Simulated assay, not measured.
Amino acid sequence: MQGLSDIGVAVIGTGFIGTVHLWALRRLGVRLTGVLGSSAGRGAERAAALGVARAYASLDELLADPDVDVVHVTSPNHAHYAQVKAILAASKHVICEKPLAMTSVESAEMVELARSSGRIAAVCYNTRFYPLNQQARGMVGAGELGDIRLITGHYHQDWLAKPGDWNWRLEADEGGTLRSVADIGTHWVDLTSFISGLSPVAVLAELATFIPERQKPLGPVETFARTSDRASETRRIQTDDAGLILLRFDNGARGSVTTSQVSHGRKNAMSWEISGASASASWHSEHPDHLWLGHRDEPNQMLQRDPGLMNATGSAAASLPGGHVEGFGDTFFALFRAVYADVLAGRRSPQSNYASFEDGHDEMLFCDAVIRSARDGRWVEVGGRE
């Protein structure tokens, strides 16, 4: 019987998030066949630094390797579409970072290709796999919050708060038309939809670019790296530093979310609050082992992550005993554990709750609606036509 150590895995991308994938894959116990960098030289350099035996010189070389069963795509957004198409055409399973593509036209095609391929195809919305987010999903499913009325929150960071801060996501031709909304806002939308079972059906959005000119360093830059002391050139910026979005849901619920990559002091602050007819719940990514539960006629509660105190959905997602904090890196391990169980089975289980390409396409439709709403200054239906 095939086990995890028999599965050969290659990773495209050797920067911050590609490295996080590698850490989680090693913990999982699959067999790493190699990495593909942005260039042959860059790939070889990073492979040596990460202790990976092989650096592929090209995508064609990677896909021709018969030892590769699964490919992780952690490259810049503009590369996802072509790389995923080639991976599926080569009959290999794929796990793609978000956003799935640059446009919803691309993501729609990717959904169809994934369906017809018969391969496992997942999108890396890892925040679903914080155990207390799984706990909250179980609570909503059991009716413990009652009918959902209001979903609010934010996702704020500060790593692009200065004119000297730089990353490829700043430029539309590499990251897409949207930045803060697509890069981190879609995480929030996917997560709250996953927990509540509700997806936005209409949006009213305003986007802001507070730093219209930035200094782009001359040379490669890794995500979250400091760049202010490097030689640079001035570049005009048109992608959003921040977004403010009102939401409507098909059950009549309302919501709002703000996104920002220029909020000083907020390192990776995603927060949601869901208010129902019976109770409320709230969670914050910088304090991931605590779930706040709000009540009207009894004391509020704070549930610390402890498998012995959680519901079946939450405890199944936990890897460590209570008091041993599970954080960002652990979510990738939990996500990959679920995906690779399906790889071994040869099909997606009905119980699997990682994000599919269909989910990734839904987020692209959400981004389309945000762009149109911000441009026209009006409510726009998600998935609606121009």
Rank of each mutant, 00 (worst) to 15 (best):
G3Q: 14
D6F: 12
T14P: 02
G15H: 05
H21Q: 09
L22V: 00
L25K: 03
G29T: 03
G29S: 06
R31I: 09
T33Y: 02
G34A: 09
V35C: 11
V35S: 07
L36N: 05
G41F: 09
G41A: 10
G43T: 00
R46S: 10
A47Y: 07
A47W: 02
A47T: 07
A48H: 14
A53Y: 08
S58Q: 09
L59I: 09
L59S: 02
A64I: 13
V71P: 02
H72S: 15
H80I: 01
Y81I: 11
A90R: 01
A90S: 05
P99C: 14
L100E: 02
M102E: 06
T103I: 09
E106R: 06
E109D: 15
E109V: 10
V111W: 01
R115A: 01
S116F: 02
S116H: 08
I120C: 07
A122Q: 01
T127E: 10
T127Q: 11
Y130F: 15
P131D: 04
P131H: 04
G138E: 01
M139V: 05
V140P: 00
G146Q: 01
I148A: 06
R149E: 12
H154C: 08
H156R: 03
Q157G: 07
D158N: 08
N167I: 12
L170S: 03
E171W: 04
I184A: 02
G185H: 01
G185M: 03
T186V: 10
W188Q: 01
V189N: 00
G197T: 05
G197I: 05
S199G: 14
A202L: 02
A205M: 10
E206K: 11
A208I: 14
A208E: 15
P212E: 08
K216C: 10
L218H: 06
P220M: 09
P220A: 05
R226C: 11
T227S: 13
S228F: 11
S232P: 08
S232W: 06
R235I: 14
G243A: 15
L244W: 14
I245P: 00
L247Q: 08
G252N: 12
G252A: 13
A253D: 11
A253Y: 11
A253Q: 13
T258Y: 09
T258I: 11
T259Q: 02
K267E: 03
N268A: 15
A281W: 00
A281E: 08
H287F: 15
H287V: 15
L291T: 01
E298S: 14
N300G: 15
Q301W: 13
M302T: 15
L303V: 12
Q304A: 15
D306P: 04
P307Y: 06
G308E: 15
A312E: 15
T313R: 12
G314Q: 04
A316V: 12
A317L: 07
G322N: 11
G322R: 00
G322F: 03
G322K: 01
G327K: 12
G327W: 12
G329K: 09
T331W: 03
A338S: 10
V339K: 04
Y340M: 07
R347A: 13
R347H: 14
N353W: 12
F357P: 00
E358V: 14
A369L: 07
V370G: 03
A374L: 07
A374M: 05
G377K: 09
W379Q: 10
V382K: 01
G383H: 01
G383R: 07
